[in-house]
Amino acid sequence: MFYGYKLFHVPNEHFVDSGPWELFLLICIFLPVIGIGFYPDLVLLLSVDRVQALLSNYYPK
């Protein structure tokens, strides 16, 4: 966020960097996204049976 012009020589008491709680949440969200990106079969295997059931309605054997 931008709060306008930068004021020089003003104490930075009200603005703090990310603390441990924010970093923990970032890691909890970021790691599964990276994991699914490298190995999507972990998630796709959960829906294989349902997709096959749907496709069998349209393309019978």
Rank of each mutant, 00 (worst) to 15 (best):
S56P: 03
A53D: 14
F24C: 05
F38T: 04
L46R: 03
L45N: 14
A53N: 08
H14T: 12
H14G: 04
L7T: 07
S18W: 15
G35F: 07
D17G: 13
L23Q: 07
I29G: 06
Y59F: 14
V51I: 10
G35W: 03
V51F: 04
L55K: 06
L54M: 11
L42E: 09
I29F: 11
L42Q: 10
L26V: 02
K6M: 08
F2M: 12
I29T: 06
E22Y: 03
L26Y: 13
R50A: 09
L31E: 02
V10N: 10
L7D: 10
Q52C: 11
H14V: 12
P32H: 02
L7S: 06
L54Q: 08
Y59I: 12
F2S: 14
P40M: 01
P32V: 02
I29D: 00
S18K: 10
W21K: 10
N57W: 15
S18E: 08
F30V: 10
R50L: 15
V43N: 04
K6I: 15
L44C: 02
D17N: 11
K6E: 15
L31V: 15
E13N: 14
G19Y: 02
M1V: 07
F8S: 07
V48K: 05
Y59N: 08
Q52E: 15
E13H: 12
G37V: 01
P60E: 01
H14I: 08
S47V: 14
S47Q: 12
L31P: 00
H9W: 13
F8V: 11
K61M: 07
S56V: 02
L42W: 13
G37N: 04
L23K: 09
V51C: 03
G4H: 01
P60D: 02
I36P: 03
A53I: 02
P20I: 15
I34Q: 01
M1F: 07
L26T: 05
S18T: 06
Y39L: 13
I27R: 03
F8H: 10
F2C: 09
P40L: 02
K6D: 15
H14F: 09
N57I: 08
G19C: 00
V10D: 05
F8N: 12
N12E: 03
H14S: 15
F2Y: 08
L23Y: 04
I34G: 00
R50D: 15
E13K: 11
Y39I: 11
W21H: 08
I36H: 01
F2A: 10
L26F: 15
G35H: 04
N12F: 01
Y5N: 14
V48H: 00
L7K: 13
G4D: 00
F38G: 04
G4L: 02
L44W: 01
Y59H: 13
C28I: 08
K6V: 14
G35K: 05
H14Y: 15
Y39H: 09
P60T: 03
A53F: 05
Q52V: 13
I36D: 00
Y3Q: 11
